[in-house]
Simulated assay, not measured.
Amino acid sequence: MTRKQRRLVLIAAAGAVLFFAAGLVLFAMRDTIVFFYGPTEITEKGVAPGTRMRLGGLVEAGSVQRGPGQRVSFAVTDSTSSVRVTYDGLLPDLFREGQGVVTEGVFEGAGRFKADSVLAKHDETYMPREVADALKKQGHWQPDGSAAPASPAAKP
């Protein structure tokens, strides 16, 4: 075997080992990878029930309903579509209607989402990047970081 052939075999073996290691890492992480969707994307892509994901958008005005115990139900919208979210637990202090929110949990189908955690924005200028990108794509993002009004009638 010549020197050039040995070098080529060594490079090929190192590439195979790296490819195998990357495959093992991705296989091990398959249960921890969570995808982000907005309400419109869920409708358009036809997300299968039982899919673990993150759902982000704005809390729809007038949609918050409190149930027995710490059960809360609300709608997350991007002004085009909305998904009904149920959550058992304490909501963040800054959670309120019209504000940006990211929920993580399981899509139950038929526009219903069961959340394990709810994250709200922490001040008037911050919104999670995924939510801001989705709102920009929909044309509902203001340069000052706030969401656009739901309709022209909402302006004073």
Rank of each mutant, 00 (worst) to 15 (best):
M1A: 11
T2L: 00
T2E: 14
R6L: 05
V9G: 00
I11K: 12
A12P: 05
A16E: 09
V17M: 10
L18M: 14
L18Q: 09
L18N: 09
F19C: 13
G23I: 09
L24H: 11
F27P: 01
R30F: 02
T32M: 02
G38Q: 01
T40K: 04
T40Q: 08
I42R: 06
T43A: 15
E44A: 12
A48V: 15
P49S: 12
P49R: 08
T51E: 05
R52K: 15
M53Y: 10
R54S: 12
L55G: 11
L58W: 06
V59N: 11
S63N: 12
Q65T: 10
G67V: 00
Q70R: 12
R71W: 11
F74D: 15
D78A: 05
T80N: 13
S82W: 03
T86I: 05
L94C: 05
F95P: 13
R96I: 02
E97S: 03
G98M: 02
Q99N: 10
G100E: 12
E104P: 00
V106G: 05
F107R: 01
E108C: 00
R112C: 04
S117Q: 15
K121W: 01
T125L: 09
E130L: 01
V131K: 03
K136V: 07
K136N: 11
K136E: 15
G139I: 01
W141E: 07
Q142R: 14
P143N: 06
P143E: 11
G145R: 03
S146D: 04
S146W: 01
A147Q: 02
P149W: 13
A154H: 12
